[in-house]
Design a binder for these strands. Structure first.
Length: 851
RNA sequence: GCGAGAGUGGCGAAACUGGUAUACGCACUGGACUUAGAAUCCAGCGGAGCAAUCCUUGGGGGUUCGAGUCCCCCCUUUCGCACCA
């Protein structure tokens, strides 16, 4: 038979039909209980309402929707929410540019983007929408802030912070990339300011340790977080300042931090950060003060250090281990906010110290020699040992009583000695700094703090929350934050004494909102006066599958983990980790580059949806590459996806015509009526189907290589079409069992594809079964009573593939060998059977003959 | 520099624990249907060769009956960190 061409698939009417059906029926809204149904929390990183959905979002949400819909088919109670991370700079910048209000701009964008998400047919529970710029959301954040403030987890301090001139605000360390602002790319300067911080360092150890339990996270992300936390164990040692003309008799000590106590006898100078409090004290001459100022200034301008720079302070310090007097240098490469701000420099065994020592002609003393060469690689070791700096561990020399020890042991003994003598201490340092959350901008969550002339820093009363962001600010883009200029906001009475006070005008980093939004989704009734309920969070969390871009590997994902631990310690729940499984999807690129306006390679989803429909766009982004890889955009690939959907639809129509005399329309998956006289071709395609269902289950349960699932469905549809359009196919002579099997086949393919292209599949299911796919029964894998009678076996001679033979299924080795030797191609190589030295046989697959 | 990943047709990509490399799709070529086009369908499509055959998973070596897959060295590339002592 021929597949009819005239019934074209009208995606417009079908897609809007199902979208309104889902909305009307509330198909995807869930309760916070579901009897004995297991729960599944499927979450995608929520978007910033920048104006329109872009391809990266489409990909992210298509992946999430595939997971959510699959899990629903599998009988899970699925929470699949969406929201908007709606505080942030672009809104404020747009307000300045267009002379509007950020709230209005944001609202318009959200409305538009909700429309786009609905047109794409994602299965969200819209009842749980979260918009973080709503006071009903951020008031809870202010409450968390107050509670953290009381526990000392939120505090204010003056420090050097990263300042972006273009964004006119400070940035957290995580938000500085290569010395540039993560958002706008302009250079970041260092500024000394008073700032609010969250004490994330108090959780450094737990944040590090708990990574080990996150089996469902990519190693890459865990490694990035480990590096970011940057734990290192070492020793602090006090060096007494001695013997400088100006400091005679001074009791000053300089404390250094090292992870290589084993090299301490090789220390030939102290290198001190220009910001070190002792630096100014040690310097007495005018020239040196000028030097210090020069280096300080350069360090403030940029974090990048082009070349090592420094000078001798004129002071010396005594190594407490051997009394050796070594010069104290100011060095630009020493960081003030790591360790103690000063280091002992061992040029012989540290590349940086070596470079600096070479430049300034400082003594170099070798104290580590390579360990005795290992068997087998003598030569390499010998060569390497000649050069300095030698940074590997080895055996100690020139180190007094510690000579002959190996590095590891020496570190331990030297540390113990220092502790015993009272001039050193074993310490653990982290690279992680506290999270600076102050932003000098308007469009963010206000910090609920007041500065009173009498009482100092005073937190608002919890009953006074929310502290609503005032709507009457003006946006000029000049000078200080709009909040600071708004007197009605700034001037306030102190909650403690009632006297005159001023409000904090900084707002919070928007990463604070995204650190707990996944908890807010669990609250069904937003009128309840709680951020979320313990029992709901306990039911839904942790998120079973979290999906988003790798760009949040450190920032958002670390902050969220931190927040969950803080909320746990504030007794909100007992959760330790928010996200059980994490999938980091690749970027959508075009012509090898990330889509961006400046490159002019942006593909706008709107136009594509209009032209091809949502299913086509979704199918393409899922089919073109596995989720974790970058996806290269390809316009004709999209057309291919569209063609496939049309072909699939026509196949279903053709199938429904064949099956139209089946009475039993309400039974999509009858196949137990199997009889012996089933068409051989049907047996074969059913056999193939069951193998593909098996494979699909594996992919859908965690590997998420949807591209291979889709290609398998394409194969099934191709085979089905070949069968019904083939010579052998005669509709009239089909048995009822044949027809039920065909129906089973088509319904199964529809279900495999439903998570990816839900509109056309819903339609197809209705056509075949006159019922709704979401309510339908689930197919089981069946074998159709069919085992292939024979199989192809590859025959190799001396490891080379020589022929493909057909043998009965499950044949034993002698039988296969016999057939193989009958093959002319094999005979050509083997000739006489007596030449065979050995054979290897893999049942139903391969025979390897060695001669 | 350090760390992690990736190199397979013209392109996107398949290949589960070593067992018929290039499935599926795109592009392309030829054909059918059409006044014509679109759509659709059929056939072909890693390279060389008339052919039989030979070669082919970044390069080189190794283990194995057998390697895209495992081991060693090198090249290219992407990402992350980069004076964290």
């Amino acid at each position: 038979m021929k597949i009819s061409e005239d019934k074209n698939y009208d995606f417009n009417s079908v897609e809007s039909k199902w979208q309104s059906f889902w909305e009307k029926e509330n198909t995807f809204s869930v309760k916070n209980t579901a009897g004995d149904k297991p729960k599944f929390y499927c979450l995608e990183m929520f978007p910033y309402p920048s104006g329109r959905i872009h391809m990266g979002h489409v990909r992210n949400y298509a992946i999430g929707d595939a997971v959510a819909r699959f899990k629903r088919l599998k009988g899970f109670n699925v929470l699949h929410p969406i929201g908007f991370d709606s505080f942030g700079l672009p809104a404020e910048n747009a307000a300045i540019k267009n002379k509007t209000n950020p709230a209005l701009w944001t609202k318009n964008n959200i409305d538009y983007m909700i429309g786009q998400l609905k047109e794409l047919g994602f299965s969200y529970d819209w009842n749980r929408l979260v918009i973080t710029s709503d006071p009903e959301y951020y008031k809870w954040e202010q409450l968390f802030f107050l509670q953290m403030f009381k526990k000392g987890l939120a505090y204010k301090k003056i420090s050097n912070v990263n300042w972006c001139d273009s964004c006119n605000t400070t940035l957290a360390n995580e938000q500085v990339e290569d010395g540039r602002c993560w958002r706008c790319g302009s250079n970041v300067n260092i500024k000394n300011m008073e700032q609010w911080f969250f004490k994330i360092t108090a959780y450094a150890e737990e944040l590090l340790n708990d990574l080990d339990g996150l089996d469902g996270w990519p190693d890459k992300v865990k490694t990035m977080q480990r590096n970011w936390i940057g734990k290192s164990s070492g020793l602090t040692v006090n060096f007494k300042i001695v013997d400088s003309d100006e400091n005679n008799g001074d009791e000053n000590c300089v404390e250094i931090f090292t992870t290589r106590p084993d090299t301490i006898f090789g220390a030939t100078y102290i290198a001190m950060s220009p910001f070190h409090p002792l630096a100014k004290k040690l310097i007495k001459t005018a020239e040196k003060t000028a030097e210090l100022e020069r280096i300080t200034r350069n360090s403030l301008i940029s974090k990048d250090i082009a070349e090592k720079d420094g000078f001798f302070t004129g002071s010396y310090a005594a190594n407490p281990f051997n009394g050796k007097k070594i010069p104290v240098f100011i060095a630009n490469f020493v960081l003030m906010d790591y360790g103690t701000g000063a280091i002992m420099s061992v040029p012989a065994h540290d590349a940086r110290d070596y470079e600096f020592a070479e430049k300034y002609g400082i003594e170099i003393i070798r104290v580590i020699k390579p360990a005795a060469p290992q068997e087998g690689n003598k030569s390499e070791n010998a060569e390497e040992s000649e050069g300095l700096p030698f940074t590997a561990p080895g055996t100690l020399i020139n180190s007094g009583e510690f000579d002959g020890l190996f590095s590891e042991e020496a570190k331990e003994k030297i540390s113990k000695y220092a502790e015993k003598e009272g001039f050193g201490k074993k310490v653990v340092n982290y690279r992680l700094r506290d999270w600076g959350i102050s932003r000098q901008r308007y469009w963010g969550c206000p910090i609920p703090i007041v500065y009173c002339e009498k009482c100092g820093t005073v937190p608002l009363n919890e009953s006074d929350l929310p502290l609503v962001l005032p709507g009457d600010a003006t946006f000029t883009g000049e000078g200080v934050s709009p909040l600071k200029k708004l007197e009605s906001f700034v001037n306030v009475k102190c909650p403690k004494c009632g006297g005159n006070a001023k409000r904090e005008t900084d707002t919070m980093d928007t990463f604070v909102e995204s650190s707990w939004y996944f908890l807010r989704y669990t609250l069904l009734d937003r009128k309840e006066e709680v951020p979320f309920k313990d029992e709901d969070a306990a039911y839904w969390l942790p998120v079973d599958q979290y999906i988003g871009g790798v760009e949040h590997a450190v920032m958002h994902l670390l902050y969220s983990r931190f927040f969950v631990k803080v909320l746990r310690d504030l007794k909100y729940f007992k959760l330790d980790e928010p996200f059980k499984n994490l999938l980091t999807q690749g970027m959508v690129v075009k012509n090898g580059a990330k889509m961006s306006k400046s490159k002019g390679n942006v593909v706008d989803p709107d136009g594509l949806i209009k032209k091809f429909g949502a299913d086509t766009v979704r199918l393409f982004v899922l089919f073109a590459a596995p989720p974790e890889k970058d996806l290269e955009w390809n316009d004709s690939g999209v057309e291919g996806a569209s063609r496939f959907i049309n072909r699939f639809y026509r196949t279903v129509i053709a199938g429904s015509e064949i099956l139209k005399d089946l009475q039993d329309n309400s039974e999509p998956f009858i196949y137990k009526t199997l009889t012996n006289d089933i068409n051989q071709n049907i047996k074969e395609i059913i056999y193939k189907l069951s193998r593909i269902i098996e494979k699909t289950e594996i992919e859908m349960e965690g590997r998420y290589h949807f591209n291979t699932v889709i290609s398998s469905s394409m194969e099934l549809i191709n085979e089905f079409n070949d069968f019904i359009t083939g010579e052998a196919f005669k509709k009239d002579v089909m048995s009822k069992a044949d027809k039920y099997l065909l129906k089973y086949f088509l319904n199964s393919v529809i279900l495999i594809l439903y998570p990816f292209i839900p509109h056309v599949c819903s339609e197809a299911f209705e056509i075949l079964n006159a019922s709704f796919i979401e309510n339908g029964p689930r197919p089981e894998k069946i074998d159709a009573g069919y085992v292939p009678e024979n199989c192809n076996i590859a025959v190799q001679v001396n490891g080379k593939m020589r022929d493909l033979i057909v043998a009965d299924i499950n044949s034993d080795e002698p039988a296969v060998l016999k057939i193989a030797l009958e093959s002319a191609k094999i005979a050509k190589y083997v000739g006489d059977k007596s030449l065979i030295k050995k054979t290897i046989y893999v049942k139903n697959k391969l025979l390897s003959i060695i001669i």
